[in-house]
């Protein structure tokens, strides 16, 4: 019994030292491999695009990807809680369009408030359908996604709403101390997401419910409220991101956010959060976001066919999950 069972005084089938070392190596690879991938991609980026690391470029990349990142924070919570949210793109569009529509006739502030409030309502609808009526989250949000999209297209007559007033564009286009406001907001949302997941009772319960719903229920956890809460948060953040994006682009339209669901899921998955739930982290999602954003920037600077970007993104998503599965198998033998 040299080191094997470090955790117990009662040695029940000790793990031999060599095995332990191998497991440690796998664990390190699983935990930090994603950072290595980020470093490699950044190096590639600086080689193919000399301006990549310039402060202006970095700021630009971050602010362009802020809406995606904010959506991904909500998606991380949903996925850790054992769910799935395909409706974030539609909610994103609902909020941006509503904000822009209202801003053209009334004040921009009212527009943002209504947009975000609508996101809350959409999230609540998802939560009720999934936890009350027990509809599979995949199906529920696929359905609600087309429901939300259809409604906003009807209301907006499928028109884009251009808003040039500064009261509308400040949210996406002002700078604070030289940094774009969306980037700062992204930072704040990530920080809050991290706090919720790692430092709050609620976050702990999201992890528990995602990891073993029956055990959590038997322990007296209100699993429906916990899981439902993740959809509400996700809806809220998607709507917030939609408002920021509309303000950045000075336009709100029902077709916005078409790829938001898949991209945000890609960000979460590349970071290594398991689609099975119960496991994952905000920092990983942040790294996933940086990887996708860097890739995006590389292809943008190369000015090649954007289809290549799709292809490489696909490969990275599948590769990340396959690697993660491999490590998992190695850990459990």
């Amino acid at each position: 019994m040299t080191n094997g069972t470090s955790t117990e005084t009662i040695p029940v089938g000790p793990t031999p030292a060599a095995d332990e070392r191998r497991l440690d190596a796998v664990r390190v690879a699983q935990n930090y491999g994603i950072y290595a991938v980020l470093v490699v991609i950044v190096i590639v980026a600086t080689i193919v695009y000399s301006g990549f690391l310039s402060p202006d470029n970095i700021k630009l990349v971050l602010s362009q990807n802020a809406p995606l990142g904010i959506v991904a924070v909500g998606m991380t919570l949903v996925i850790i809680g054992g769910g799935f949210d395909l409706s974030v793109g539609a909610i994103f569009a609902v909020s941006g369009t509503a904000a822009a529509m209202i801003a053209t006739h009334h004040g921009a502030a009212e527009g943002f408030v209504v947009g975000v409030a609508l996101g809350l309502v959409c999230g609540l609808i998802n939560a009720i359908v999934i936890t009350r009526f027990r509809v599979n989250p995949f199906v529920a949000t696929l359905g609600s996604s087309s429901l939300f999209s259809g409604v906003i297209m009807l209301i907006s007559n499928s028109n884009p709403f251009f808003v040039e007033k500064t009261s509308f564009t400040w949210l996406g286009q002002t700078k604070l101390l030289g940094v774009q406001l969306p980037t700062i907001l992204l930072g704040i949302v990530f920080l809050l997401g991290w706090l919720v997941l790692n430092r709050s009772v609620y976050g702990r319960r999201v992890l528990a419910v995602g990891g073993n719903p029956e055990a959590s229920r038997l322990a007296g956890v209100r699993t429906d409220l916990v899981q439902g809460g993740t959809y509400v948060i996700s809806g809220l953040l998607a709507a917030f991101a939609g408002a920021i994006s509309a303000s950045q682009l000075s336009v709100g339209q029902g077709t916005a956010g078409g790829t938001m669901a898949l991209q945000s899921i890609a960000v979460v998955v590349i970071g290594g959060t398991s689609l099975l739930g119960g496991e994952g982290s905000m920092t990983r999602t942040a790294v996933g976001l940086l990887i996708l954003a860097t890739l995006d920037n590389i292809f943008f600077s190369l000015a090649v066919d954007t289809n290549w970007q799709l292809i490489s993104q696909g490969i990275i998503v599948i590769g990340a999950v396959a690697l993660d599965q491999l490590f998992r198998r190695m850990r459990t033998k």
């Binding site: 702990r204 992890l207 038997l218 322990a219």
Partner: peptide
């Protein structure tokens, strides 16, 4: 067993009644 395998040992003991 009603253990949440991915949570820590301590978190499992306080499951549903987390000290906070």
């Amino acid at each position: 067993l009603t253990i949440v395998p991915l949570l820590s040992a301590a978190a499992n003991v306080f499951l549903g009644e987390e000290l906070g």
